[in-house]
Simulated scan of single mutants.
Amino acid sequence: MIRILLADDEPLMRVGIRTILSADSGIEVVAEAGTGRETVDLARRYRPDVALVDIQMPDTDGLTAIGGILEASPRTAVAMLTTFGQDDYITRALDGGASGFLLKTAEPQELMAGVRAVADGGAFLSPKVARRVISHLRDRPASPAHAARERVAALSRREKDVLASLGTGRSNAEIARDLHLAEDTVKAHVSAILTRLDLQNRVQAAILAHEAGMSRRE
Protein backbone atom coordinates (compact mmCIF):
# COMPACT_ATOMS: atom_id res chain seq x y z
CA MET A 1 0.00 0.00 0.00
CA ILE A 2 1.35 3.44 -0.97
CA ARG A 3 0.60 5.92 1.80
CA ILE A 4 0.01 9.50 0.64
CA LEU A 5 0.14 12.87 2.36
CA LEU A 6 -1.89 15.32 0.27
CA ALA A 7 -1.16 19.02 0.75
CA ASP A 8 -3.21 21.74 -0.97
CA ASP A 9 -4.84 24.85 0.47
CA GLU A 10 -7.99 24.35 -1.65
CA PRO A 11 -10.36 21.80 -0.02
CA LEU A 12 -12.17 21.10 -3.28
CA MET A 13 -8.89 20.35 -5.03
CA ARG A 14 -7.96 17.92 -2.25
CA VAL A 15 -11.33 16.20 -2.64
CA GLY A 16 -10.81 15.80 -6.37
CA ILE A 17 -7.28 14.44 -6.06
CA ARG A 18 -8.26 12.11 -3.22
CA THR A 19 -11.13 10.78 -5.31
CA ILE A 20 -8.79 10.03 -8.21
CA LEU A 21 -6.23 8.31 -6.00
CA SER A 22 -8.87 6.29 -4.12
CA ALA A 23 -9.76 4.57 -7.39
CA ASP A 24 -6.48 2.67 -7.02
CA SER A 25 -6.74 0.03 -4.31
CA GLY A 26 -2.99 0.18 -3.79
CA ILE A 27 -2.98 3.87 -2.83
CA GLU A 28 -4.25 5.37 0.44
CA VAL A 29 -4.40 9.06 1.42
CA VAL A 30 -3.48 8.91 5.11
CA ALA A 31 -3.40 12.64 5.84
CA GLU A 32 -4.31 16.01 4.32
CA ALA A 33 -2.82 19.44 4.93
CA GLY A 34 -3.82 22.95 3.94
CA THR A 35 -0.64 24.83 4.88
CA GLY A 36 3.07 24.29 4.51
CA ARG A 37 3.71 24.05 8.24
CA GLU A 38 0.91 21.53 8.67
CA THR A 39 2.39 19.51 5.82
CA VAL A 40 5.75 19.23 7.58
CA ASP A 41 4.07 18.34 10.89
CA LEU A 42 1.97 15.61 9.26
CA ALA A 43 5.00 14.25 7.40
CA ARG A 44 6.74 13.86 10.75
CA ARG A 45 3.67 12.21 12.28
CA TYR A 46 2.66 9.82 9.48
CA ARG A 47 5.94 9.34 7.57
CA PRO A 48 4.10 8.74 4.29
CA ASP A 49 5.62 7.08 1.25
CA VAL A 50 4.77 10.07 -0.92
CA ALA A 51 3.91 13.69 -0.17
CA LEU A 52 1.91 15.39 -2.93
CA VAL A 53 2.51 19.06 -2.24
CA ASP A 54 1.00 22.14 -3.86
CA ILE A 55 3.42 24.93 -4.81
CA GLN A 56 1.48 27.82 -3.30
CA MET A 57 0.15 27.44 0.23
CA PRO A 58 -0.25 29.76 3.24
CA ASP A 59 2.50 30.45 5.81
CA THR A 60 5.13 28.18 4.19
CA ASP A 61 4.90 27.51 0.47
CA GLY A 62 5.40 24.08 -1.02
CA LEU A 63 8.88 24.83 -2.31
CA THR A 64 10.06 25.83 1.16
CA ALA A 65 8.28 22.88 2.74
CA ILE A 66 10.29 20.34 0.71
CA GLY A 67 13.31 20.61 2.99
CA GLY A 68 11.19 20.31 6.12
CA ILE A 69 9.40 17.25 4.80
CA LEU A 70 12.63 15.47 3.88
CA GLU A 71 14.16 16.33 7.24
CA ALA A 72 11.10 15.15 9.15
CA SER A 73 10.69 11.98 7.08
CA PRO A 74 13.76 11.19 4.95
CA ARG A 75 12.13 8.18 3.28
CA THR A 76 9.21 10.23 1.98
CA ALA A 77 9.32 11.06 -1.72
CA VAL A 78 8.05 14.54 -2.52
CA ALA A 79 6.11 15.28 -5.69
CA MET A 80 5.06 18.83 -6.43
CA LEU A 81 1.48 19.30 -7.58
CA THR A 82 0.58 22.57 -9.25
CA THR A 83 -1.23 24.39 -12.01
CA PHE A 84 1.92 26.32 -12.75
CA GLY A 85 4.65 25.33 -15.19
CA GLN A 86 7.15 28.18 -14.88
CA ASP A 87 10.78 27.16 -15.18
CA ASP A 88 11.78 28.78 -11.88
CA TYR A 89 9.23 26.69 -9.96
CA ILE A 90 10.34 23.51 -11.72
CA THR A 91 14.05 23.95 -11.16
CA ARG A 92 13.64 25.16 -7.57
CA ALA A 93 11.51 22.12 -6.74
CA LEU A 94 13.90 19.64 -8.33
CA ASP A 95 17.00 21.29 -6.89
CA GLY A 96 15.29 21.26 -3.49
CA GLY A 97 14.90 17.49 -3.55
CA ALA A 98 11.51 16.85 -5.15
CA SER A 99 11.28 13.54 -6.99
CA GLY A 100 8.41 14.54 -9.24
CA PHE A 101 6.49 17.43 -10.68
CA LEU A 102 2.84 16.85 -11.61
CA LEU A 103 0.38 19.29 -13.12
CA LYS A 104 -3.12 19.46 -11.65
CA THR A 105 -4.45 19.47 -15.19
CA ALA A 106 -2.91 16.04 -15.86
CA GLU A 107 -5.04 13.01 -16.68
CA PRO A 108 -5.91 10.77 -13.68
CA GLN A 109 -3.77 7.96 -15.12
CA GLU A 110 -0.76 10.28 -15.22
CA LEU A 111 -1.30 11.33 -11.61
CA MET A 112 -1.41 7.73 -10.41
CA ALA A 113 1.59 6.78 -12.56
CA GLY A 114 3.55 9.63 -11.03
CA VAL A 115 2.66 8.59 -7.50
CA ARG A 116 3.72 5.01 -8.16
CA ALA A 117 6.97 6.08 -9.84
CA VAL A 118 8.20 8.27 -6.98
CA ALA A 119 6.98 5.77 -4.37
CA ASP A 120 9.17 3.17 -6.07
CA GLY A 121 12.22 5.38 -5.67
CA GLY A 122 12.15 6.74 -9.19
CA ALA A 123 11.43 10.16 -10.62
CA PHE A 124 8.44 11.41 -12.57
CA LEU A 125 7.84 14.58 -14.54
CA SER A 126 4.63 15.34 -16.38
CA PRO A 127 5.42 15.40 -20.12
CA LYS A 128 4.99 19.18 -20.33
CA VAL A 129 7.32 19.61 -17.37
CA ALA A 130 9.86 17.16 -18.79
CA ARG A 131 10.12 19.22 -21.96
CA ARG A 132 10.79 22.35 -19.92
CA VAL A 133 13.45 20.62 -17.82
CA ILE A 134 15.24 19.24 -20.89
CA SER A 135 15.16 22.68 -22.47
CA HIS A 136 16.49 24.21 -19.27
CA LEU A 137 19.34 21.70 -19.09
CA ARG A 138 20.34 22.43 -22.66
CA ASP A 139 20.25 26.18 -22.05
CA ARG A 140 22.27 26.13 -18.84
CA PRO A 141 25.55 28.06 -19.12
CA ALA A 142 28.69 26.03 -19.59
CA SER A 143 30.25 27.27 -16.35
CA PRO A 144 28.94 24.46 -14.10
CA ALA A 145 30.45 21.79 -16.37
CA HIS A 146 33.94 21.86 -14.89
CA ALA A 147 32.66 21.76 -11.31
CA ALA A 148 30.25 18.96 -12.21
CA ARG A 149 33.02 16.89 -13.79
CA GLU A 150 35.14 17.38 -10.68
CA ARG A 151 32.25 16.14 -8.50
CA VAL A 152 31.83 12.91 -10.46
CA ALA A 153 35.57 12.24 -10.83
CA ALA A 154 35.65 10.27 -7.58
CA LEU A 155 33.11 7.74 -8.83
CA SER A 156 34.19 4.33 -10.06
CA ARG A 157 33.97 3.59 -13.78
CA ARG A 158 30.84 1.51 -13.27
CA GLU A 159 29.21 4.20 -11.11
CA LYS A 160 29.90 6.71 -13.88
CA ASP A 161 28.20 4.38 -16.36
CA VAL A 162 25.15 4.19 -14.10
CA LEU A 163 25.12 7.97 -13.56
CA ALA A 164 25.28 8.53 -17.31
CA SER A 165 22.26 6.30 -17.75
CA LEU A 166 20.41 8.12 -14.98
CA GLY A 167 20.92 11.26 -17.05
CA THR A 168 18.59 9.86 -19.69
CA GLY A 169 15.84 9.03 -17.18
CA ARG A 170 16.27 5.27 -17.42
CA SER A 171 14.79 3.04 -14.74
CA ASN A 172 16.86 0.56 -12.74
CA ALA A 173 15.58 -2.28 -14.92
CA GLU A 174 16.57 -0.46 -18.11
CA ILE A 175 20.02 0.39 -16.75
CA ALA A 176 20.51 -3.23 -15.69
CA ARG A 177 19.62 -4.39 -19.19
CA ASP A 178 21.84 -1.82 -20.91
CA LEU A 179 24.88 -2.46 -18.69
CA HIS A 180 24.35 -6.22 -18.31
CA LEU A 181 24.01 -6.01 -14.54
CA ALA A 182 21.60 -7.43 -11.98
CA GLU A 183 18.91 -4.95 -10.99
CA ASP A 184 19.92 -5.20 -7.32
CA THR A 185 23.46 -4.26 -8.34
CA VAL A 186 22.14 -1.19 -10.13
CA LYS A 187 20.13 -0.21 -7.05
CA ALA A 188 23.30 -0.49 -4.95
CA HIS A 189 25.23 1.67 -7.42
CA VAL A 190 22.49 4.31 -7.47
CA SER A 191 22.43 4.44 -3.67
CA ALA A 192 26.22 4.77 -3.57
CA ILE A 193 26.16 7.56 -6.18
CA LEU A 194 23.55 9.56 -4.29
CA THR A 195 25.45 9.18 -1.02
CA ARG A 196 28.89 9.95 -2.43
CA LEU A 197 27.74 12.99 -4.39
CA ASP A 198 25.41 14.24 -1.63
CA LEU A 199 22.35 14.09 -3.90
CA GLN A 200 18.82 13.59 -2.64
CA ASN A 201 17.29 11.73 -5.57
CA ARG A 202 17.59 10.51 -9.15
CA VAL A 203 16.42 13.79 -10.62
CA GLN A 204 19.33 15.64 -9.07
CA ALA A 205 21.65 12.89 -10.30
CA ALA A 206 20.27 13.28 -13.84
CA ILE A 207 20.81 17.04 -13.73
CA LEU A 208 24.40 16.56 -12.56
CA ALA A 209 25.01 14.04 -15.35
CA HIS A 210 23.81 16.61 -17.89
CA GLU A 211 25.99 19.34 -16.38
CA ALA A 212 29.01 17.04 -16.53
CA GLY A 213 28.27 16.24 -20.18
CA MET A 214 28.07 12.53 -19.54
CA SER A 215 24.44 11.60 -20.29
CA ARG A 216 24.12 8.56 -22.52
CA ARG A 217 22.36 9.11 -25.78
CA GLU A 218 19.14 7.24 -26.51
Rank of each mutant, 00 (worst) to 15 (best):
V129K: 04
R138H: 07
K160Q: 12
G169A: 14
R131K: 12
G121W: 12
P127V: 01
H146V: 10
S156G: 14
A130M: 08
V129C: 06
S143N: 02
R151V: 05
R149G: 07
A147V: 04
G122N: 06
A119Y: 11
R132D: 08
P127N: 06
A147F: 01
A173V: 14
A148K: 02
L125C: 13
K128G: 14
V118I: 12
G122T: 09
S165K: 04
R131E: 15
A164Q: 13
G121I: 02
K128I: 12
L163M: 08
A154C: 09
K128H: 13
V152I: 15
A154W: 01
A130T: 02
P144M: 06
S171T: 15
R140K: 08
S135H: 11
A123S: 14
R138W: 03
R131G: 15
A153S: 10
R138E: 06
L163G: 12
A147H: 07
V133M: 09
H146C: 00
K128P: 02
S165A: 10
S171H: 11
V133C: 06
R151Y: 02
V133D: 10
K160F: 02
T168V: 09
N172Q: 12
A164M: 11
R158N: 02
R151N: 06
V162K: 03
V129E: 09
K160E: 04
V162G: 04
I134Q: 10
R149K: 11
G167R: 03
V152Q: 03
A119Q: 07
H146T: 14
F124D: 09
A153N: 06
S126G: 15
R149S: 02
G122R: 04
N172P: 02
A164V: 04
A164H: 11
G167N: 04
V129S: 06
S126V: 04
V133E: 10
V129Q: 11
S171C: 03
D139N: 14
R157T: 12
L163K: 07
L163F: 11
H136L: 08
R158G: 01
A164N: 11
S126I: 06
G121E: 03
R158Y: 05
R132N: 14
H136A: 13
A147D: 13
K128M: 09
A119W: 07
S156A: 08
S143R: 05
L166S: 06
R140C: 01
A147Y: 01
A145V: 00
D120R: 08
R140G: 00
H146L: 07
S165R: 04
R131C: 01
L137H: 05
A173F: 05
L137Y: 00
S165G: 12
R170Y: 13
P141F: 05
